[in-house]
């Protein structure tokens, strides 16, 4: 149990730092989605299934979709560099 939680927390914190420092904006949005997904796993491990479902559906799905559409409309959708 503690190893699973430690690995998930490490992945979550590393991708949270990656959101702030990655130069590519698409990678930053993807890292924000990874933070939400790891958070949903943590909620499920902490016996809160309703919150885990909401976080997985909104944070990892709808919010990433919204931010990616915003990226495309802002002209920041550049795959290379």
């Amino acid at each position: 149990m503690i190893w699973i939680v430690s690995i998930v927390v490490l992945v979550m914190l590393a991708s949270a730092i990656a959101v702030l420092v990655l130069p590519n904006m698409i990678a930053a949005v993807a890292a924000a989605s990874v933070v939400s997904l790891a958070l949903a796993v943590l909620f499920a491990l902490m016996k809160a299934p309703d919150v885990a479902m909401t976080e997985a559906a909104i944070g990892a799905g709808l919010s990433a979709l919204l931010l990616a559409m915003g990226l495309k409309r802002l002209g920041l959708w550049q795959l290379e560099d």
Partner: peptide, 24 residues
């Protein structure tokens, strides 16, 4: 998910998000 929200984990918020995604 909406209709069985009071029996199993889930409910209006989660099901509503899935409906919005399905519509979009």
């Amino acid at each position: 998910i909406i209709f069985y929200g009071h029996v199993t984990p889930g409910g209006g918020f989660q099901g509503g998000v899935i409906l919005a995604t399905a519509f979009f």
